[in-house]
Design a binder for these strands. Sequence first.
DNA 1: ATTAGTTACGCATATCGTAACGATG
DNA 2: CATCGTTACGATATGCGTAACTAAT
Lengths: 286, 286
Amino acid sequence: MLNLLEMEQLAAFAECGTLSKAAEKLNVSQPTITRTMQHLEDEFGVPLFQRTKNHIALNETGMRAVEHAQKILKAAEDAVEDVRLFDRSLHTITVSSCAPAPLWHLLPELSDAFPGMTMSSSVKNNAAVLDDLRSGACLLAVLPDHVLSSHISEEDYCCIPFMKENLSVCVPPFHALAEYDDISFAELNGYNFLLGTRLGFWDEMCREKMPASRFLVQTDQFTMEEVIRESSLPCFVTDAVSYDRDIYRDRIVIPITDQEAKIIFHAVFDRNNKKYADVFRRLFRV
Amino acid sequence: MLNLLEMEQLAAFAECGTLSKAAEKLNVSQPTITRTMQHLEDEFGVPLFQRTKNHIALNETGMRAVEHAQKILKAAEDAVEDVRLFDRSLHTITVSSCAPAPLWHLLPELSDAFPGMTMSSSVKNNAAVLDDLRSGACLLAVLPDHVLSSHISEEDYCCIPFMKENLSVCVPPFHALAEYDDISFAELNGYNFLLGTRLGFWDEMCREKMPASRFLVQTDQFTMEEVIRESSLPCFVTDAVSYDRDIYRDRIVIPITDQEAKIIFHAVFDRNNKKYADVFRRLFRV
DNA sequence: ATTAGTTACGCATATCGTAACGATG
DNA sequence: CATCGTTACGATATGCGTAACTAAT
């Protein structure tokens, strides 16, 4: 029977052109390669090389054998890779969320519900979350109400509302906006805002609703908080974070009136997933 | 690195269900299989089995690994098979002919032209010969003139006429047909004939041209000759065999007048075959 | 008591590297 | 004479089978 180590040496020889180079590449002695090539000819039962006294090269048949060797080696590598990933998937709950806040609730609950399993979560925009759900890249998706009806079939997927989040702007008392009791995106459009990163669909929505505004993106949380404290630039908060935190103490929170600022997050998962559908249903108390 | 022998043992275990059965199947001791399964788990780096004290079974990951193992094993087997066939093809001139007679001329000439190579020839009906030519199953095809124009593109294939064969019927002197100087298929239609086997397109043609006739097929050459000698049943001969052979000495040969009985055989081969096209052209003196 | 799987031990063989050799440009 | 491939030889490692052990039915 063929031998993957020998296949590898054959492929290396094809790549390097001489036995010595191949030996060096694979950190074995050169006679080892000689022997392997002889053995391979035995295995295949046909000549694979053109030999002269001090030269050896693949013949036409040999090249054909090399192609097979490469294919088989790749299959073997892929097999290990795939089996490892599969094993990992058996011990991992993957969640793709359109916003960060739902994960703060969800991940601890999932950890309790699936003791011993790894949680793997990511925050993406709605389209990317939908892709993950459809491709199976995530077991559980978190999506806002307004994308469900248009993009998710109730037949295939179970959608359970489990959390609300309402967006507000947050300004210092002396700011021009501070006098509003509530406000709309239309009225906010044109102001510039501080904005965090990894906000999922919020990022996209803000840019759509306030196209005239500029968003001053802060990638570092500490920097963000310092700038909020020390500047009068408006920023966003939601009721998913505590308003009374230190940094917001001196600011005024103004709810946004648009429907799009009042999000109901849904947990979405494959109805037919035998392993998880029931547990998810129980988890969300339905 | 994975090992094909171990893959084979894994596949055998999957098939047999117990280590002992797998060991028996592969003619190795049972501890060998135990060790291999342990080693495989090391290789993959993840658990592949559910073990109790005296039972072992594949887990979900293990089944996945088995699928890969089977795929890889098949690829390895196919590789050897393919490389051997390829090597053989390098040393074999394959000819598919629509009739036996052209081969009598062709094969000796090819043997001379390609010393050291093996000749592999077969006689098939026209459609099968065309298939062989198109699929590359033969390097050289022998086909009658009338199929060329309709089925062969001059752009891709080189067609060279190299031999004629004319069909006659052959009857004893006292037979009803013996008075004809020549004769047509229409006139022959309804008579029953002795017929050999492996006649290529001749067989098909006879049955088409003389649908009312019955053909008494003789698979054995010796039997055929005895029946010709001892019966008055008509049979066929062509000018490619010597009429004056012993068995025909007492019979009368009547040429068939139809155009379809006067065949011009063409050698047909791939114009773009770098290795053989030129030699074939020279061989047929074009 | 039989069947299944794992572990331990010792031997046979396979495999590798070093060294010596032969050929070529 | 430097490079490349092959052959020979000895050390080591690998892999196998036998046998002994444990657990379960």
